[in-house]
Amino acid sequence: NMVHPNVICDGCNGPVVGTRYKCSVCPDYDLCSVCEGKGLHRGHTKLAFPSP
């Protein structure tokens, strides 16, 4: 899995490795796959980016 450079997960404050989930509503909100799997930020649609 690749690390998305200059992207920090807003759920756990860790690096985003593998798929990046970017909120389509909020201007700067990203989740890693673990936090997305936990259902964080469920109210907004997210775009999935498998690689940087």
Results as ranks from 00 to 15, higher is better:
S51I: 07
V25P: 03
S51Q: 15
H41S: 02
H44S: 02
G43D: 15
N6F: 03
I8C: 13
H4F: 13
S24A: 13
S33R: 07
S33Q: 13
P15W: 10
D28S: 10
P5G: 06
G11W: 07
K46F: 12
V17R: 14
T45P: 08
A48C: 14
V17E: 09
D10K: 15
D10W: 11
V16G: 01
T45Y: 06
R20F: 10
V3L: 10
V3H: 09
P50T: 12
K22S: 07
N1K: 15
N6V: 11
L31D: 01
N13A: 07
N13Q: 14
S51E: 12
L47C: 14
H4T: 13
C23I: 01
V17Q: 14
D30H: 12
G43I: 11
Y21P: 03
V16S: 03
E36K: 04
N1Q: 04
C12A: 01
V17M: 13
C12Q: 01
G43K: 13
P5K: 07
V25A: 05
P52N: 04
G37W: 06
Y29S: 05
D28Q: 10
C9P: 02
V34T: 11
A48E: 15
N13H: 09
P15Q: 08
K38F: 09
C12Y: 01
G37V: 06
V3P: 07
P27S: 10
R20G: 14
C26K: 02
N1T: 10
G18N: 05
S33K: 11
K38V: 05
L40W: 09
C35W: 00
P15T: 13
T45F: 09
K46W: 08
P27I: 07
N6C: 07
S33I: 09
C9R: 00
C9S: 01
Y21G: 02
N13R: 14
P15G: 08
R20V: 11
K38A: 07
H4A: 12
P15D: 15
P27M: 08
C12H: 02
V7K: 10
V16I: 14
P50N: 15
G39N: 07
P5D: 06
E36F: 07
K22N: 09
Y29W: 03
L47A: 12
L31R: 02
D10N: 13
A48R: 11
D28K: 15
G11C: 08
H4I: 10
D10E: 11
H41F: 03
N13F: 10
V16P: 01
T45R: 13
G37H: 12
V17Y: 12
C26E: 02
N1G: 03
V16L: 03
G14N: 10
G37Q: 09
G18R: 04
G14F: 04
G43C: 12
V7P: 06
V7R: 06
L40S: 07
T45L: 07
R20S: 08
G43W: 10
A48V: 14
N13V: 05
T45G: 11
H41M: 06
C26A: 02
M2Y: 00
V34M: 12
T45C: 06
F49L: 14
C23T: 02
R42F: 13
P52C: 04
